[in-house]
Every structure is written in C-alpha cells, then in structure tokens.
Simulated assay, not measured.
Amino acid sequence: MKVVHFYKLFFLGMDVNAYLHRVGITATTAPSVVALRELHRQHLLSIPFESLSIHCGEKIILDHGLLYEKLVVKRRGGFCYENNGLFLWVLQVLGYKPRVLSAKVKNTFTGVYGPPFDHMILTVELEGRQWLCDVGFGEGIREPLPLEAGWEEEQDNLVYRLREDQGEWFLETNKDSNWSSLYKFTLEAKHFEEFKEMCEYQQTSPSSFFFCKSFCSLQLPRGRLTYMGHRLIQTEFTENGEVVKTTQQLKDDEILDVLRNRFGIVLSGKFVPKDEELLPATYD
C-alpha cells in the first residue's frame, strides 16, 4: 500500500482506485499473472482505443496527469501512447515493474512498417517469465503473452504468436490460415518521454492512420464495436469459431449520439468525421 500512497502524492489528483473503478475491478491483490491478466482484459473491455481528439481540436500531450484526466475522469479513450501510458502508471502503482518498449506497426493499408517509436508496448517480469502487455492496439492481444519465441495462443477466436528473428520480435495473428504481422519490436528498454515526437507525428501526418481516420473501437466479451468515419461496425465471435461483421452507415447528425450511447464518450470540441486514404510513407 505504501507505493500507492507515494504515487497519489507524486501525481497530484491521481487515484489508482478511481482507475480500478473505471475498469470494473473492485479489489486488487499482490502482483501475479492472474491479476495482470484481469487488469489487461478489463482495461480493454472498458477504455476505448480511439483517435477522436485529433478530429475535435484536442491536443494530445504525453503527460500522466493529463492521460489520467482524459481516460479516467472524463471516461474517454486514446491511442497507444495514451492507453499504454496510463497502464504503465497503473502497473507501477500496483507494485509491478513494467518496462517500456518501442514497436513498429505494419500498416494494413500500405504494408509498410512504421518508424521507431511508432507504437508503445510494455513488458512485465512475473513468476519467472517476461510478459508482453499491450492495451493500445485495435486488433491486439486481450491478455498478456509470455515473451517466448514460437509461443502461440488463442484469445477469443483470434490466434496470436510471437516470432523472433535476429533480435527482432514479431507479434503475428492467424487469419484465414495465414500468419500476418501486426508489429515488430526489440527488447531495448525505452522511456515514456521518448515517444513525444512520434505522438506529434501521429496527430499531424497524412501517413498516420490516426490523422486520416476518425475512429473509436471497444473490445466486447465476444467481439468488438468500432466506429470509423461514417460507419459503425459490429464484430461478433461466434461459438463455432466464425467471425461475423455487420456494418451500419451513419449520417453526420447520428455520430455523436452513437459515440455517447454505444461508447460512453461525450466530446467537447467540434467534431469532424474523417475516413481518408493514407499517403504512402517509407522508413529506414
């Protein structure tokens, strides 16, 4: 409990119990794999992955106090630096010892990997193993994965594996019997502050998914609910292993109601929906 009180003082106004209430956890235990799995899953089921700030005039600044205010107090969501940045603080408060890593996302539209610091992920050492944590990726893992080359695991109808090649690690998913890469990373530890430049890039570049697409996505117990541009997409994982998607077209005056009623998000600035093609970009 001492560590919790320390962080309450250090991050003025930030209370880890408010976060736990936000994600539907009523009590905490000492750090363990079981507790980490619950934290990870409940975060994804409660806090959306979204780019809405970029499209309603809000500047995203990588500051733990501001992230707490947005995601916990205002009950919003955020992109990877925000979700994983908040989760980093939570894990520290609860007695875990997370490490920050940099990942390069494989763009599903262009097939090109992003630059360094394109994506932020975390690892935690528990019970003799390293665990990959990521609560800031739309189609990513729902629970931590053991950081072991060749590890495969099914999570809610999606199969993930970790592959290692000459010091680079790849998180891959199996779709239609084919493995495809989500992102790659190395195990070199980074600092949260090092992602600030790429956070600015993601908000302003026409090669950024977040700049080109206004979206909000929330994991469901057996699927996913996603708003993008003028569409509302419901993804359901059926008991027989199928993935069923339904799409509803939205009018401009319906979008804010959908965000409020389906995601619990109320925007304060003028919102401009967007769903444009990304400009191609290449990186060294």
Results as ranks from 00 to 15, higher is better:
K184N: 07
T282H: 07
S181Q: 14
W151V: 08
G150W: 12
V272A: 14
S181R: 12
D156V: 07
C80M: 03
P206I: 04
F192S: 02
S180C: 14
F109I: 03
H43L: 11
S53W: 02
N261P: 06
S214N: 02
M1W: 05
E82P: 00
V93D: 00
Y68V: 06
L36P: 04
V243P: 07
Y81P: 00
T173N: 08
K74V: 02
E125K: 11
F209Y: 12
Y227S: 08
T226C: 09
N261C: 10
Q219K: 11
S214G: 07
K175E: 09
C56H: 15
Y7H: 15
L9K: 10
W131S: 09
Q202C: 08
T173I: 13
L66M: 03
K74Y: 14
A103Q: 03
V243C: 13
S102W: 12
F170R: 01
C199R: 09
Y81W: 00
G13C: 04
V159Q: 10
D257T: 15
W169H: 01
G269S: 01
R41H: 14
E69R: 10
I265P: 03
N17D: 15
E125I: 06
C199I: 15
L147E: 02
F137E: 08
G167T: 12
P98N: 01
F10A: 15
V4F: 01
E239K: 11
Y183F: 14
C212S: 08
V105M: 00
F49L: 05
Q42V: 03
G269N: 08
V124M: 07
F10L: 15
D253M: 01
K184L: 12
E194M: 07
H191V: 15
I233M: 10
A189L: 05
G128H: 05
L39F: 04
S32N: 11
D253K: 02
H119A: 04
F109W: 09
P206R: 11
H21S: 08
R41S: 06
W151G: 00
M14R: 11
Y183A: 01
Q219P: 13
E200T: 15
L147H: 06
E139C: 07
S205R: 14
V100Q: 06
L101Q: 03
E127K: 10
W179N: 05
V33K: 15
E164K: 06
L88V: 02
L145W: 00
L94M: 14
G264K: 10
E82I: 06
L91D: 07
D118R: 05
F210H: 13
G136N: 04
N240W: 07
H5G: 13
G136Y: 06
L67T: 09
Q130M: 13
F87E: 04
T282M: 14
G65M: 09
V73L: 13
T108L: 14
R76Q: 15
E143K: 02
A35L: 06
W169T: 01
F195D: 05
G229T: 03
R75W: 03
V93L: 01
